[in-house]
């Protein structure tokens, strides 16, 4: 499973790079989510190398997935709010 471990680190690194370089908030949100998938991949591929599959990382990843979807939902709602306020404010200035 070395391929998955290397891929995981690459995903984490690339997402981190994009998080810094890309300006659009939507891409930033996607980058955070992809970094999450990279981390989950690392944990699960790591758990798979043992003789008895380790269930603790599985549980951590399930928790992580739910946290990620929550954060994404709020982020998207915040972007919509920003758009609403900017449209409303266009007349002011």
């Amino acid at each position: 499973m070395t391929a998955y471990l290397v891929l995981a680190v690459v995903m984490i690194g690339l997402s981190g790079t994009a998080l810094v370089l890309r300006r659009h908030p939507m891409i930033k949100l996607l980058a955070v989510n992809l970094m999450g998938i990279g981390i989950f991949l690392w944990l699960i591929a790591g758990a798979h190398t043992a003789q008895v599959t380790d269930s603790v990382p599985h549980a951590l990843v399930l928790t992580g997935i739910v946290v990620a979807v929550s954060a994404t939902a709020f982020g998207l709602a915040l972007l919509v709010k920003q758009k609403e306020l900017e449209q409303a404010g266009e007349g002011d200035d």
Binding site: L19, I39, F74, Q82
Partner: peptide, 23 residues
Amino acid sequence: VTYLMVSLGGSILYLAGVAFLYT
């Protein structure tokens, strides 16, 4: 919006470190 990106980015970097330590 900026604060959210920073906050999420900060926690996910932390989580990456945690994963590397756990393995």
